[in-house]
Design a protein around this nucleic acid. Sequence first.
DNA 1: ATGCCGTGGAAACCACGA
Length: 257
Amino acid sequence: MRIATYNVNSVHARLPSLLRWLQETTPDIVCLQELKTPQEKFPESAIRDAGYGVIWHGQKSYNGVAILTRGCEPTEVRRVLPGDPEDLHSRYIEAVVRDVTIGCLYLPNGNPAPGPKFDYKLRWLERLTLHAAELVGKDSPVILAGDYNVIPTEKDVYKPERWINDALFRVETREAFNRLVAQGWTDAVRHLHPEATIYTFWDYFRNSYGRDAGLRIDHHLLNAAAFKRLDRAGVDRDVRGWERASDHAPTWIDLKD
DNA sequence: ATGCCGTGGAAACCACGA
């Protein structure tokens, strides 16, 4: 079973690439972020015609998350991260697919840091950690997949020294991410490729993709039941080189059946 | 060190992303 996450940076602009990638790689579960569309304008029929059931939580202009499931319907569990009724950003949606619980998340960027946006990022990460504590001990597989906007270690950025004060790499961010992982989660891509240079994002400018000046910020966190079934993991990095690409590439894991 | 690019939405620029 392949479970992928892909920040599309507008589901409308990316629809041709998204459909091509779905057809070529046939992932079983797909988490999308940055839909950048109101709820009613999501391209539901194009996704269904491609063979996927889908739930989504849209928002005008910004954010937006979706879960796609090949050949079946996802059962929605929630479409809001608990803990702050005043937070109206569409950044979290959770579903059950067969025996797998999947949380699809788009963590706030947090720049500039310090400042209110950075405070919001850290609060959101704390809320995610509280919610994750409720999920990590389940006997069935749980995967928290998405754009974390967190560079976990120096291995995960082309020039760490340039990112020290950035919200994605600040000490507070990495420590908060480490506290989440320490509940008992496994960073699947890093676990299977402990030494490799692996990126999931390349800026649009300065020829970042051509220079391979990237970041690894899209992650799958697995609870113990999911980790037991972990088989492979990777990044479809060639998708970043397609015409009109997102600045992120699809990232995936394979679980044994 | 930087928004140089890309997207949406409103407005002929600005917010936002990472």
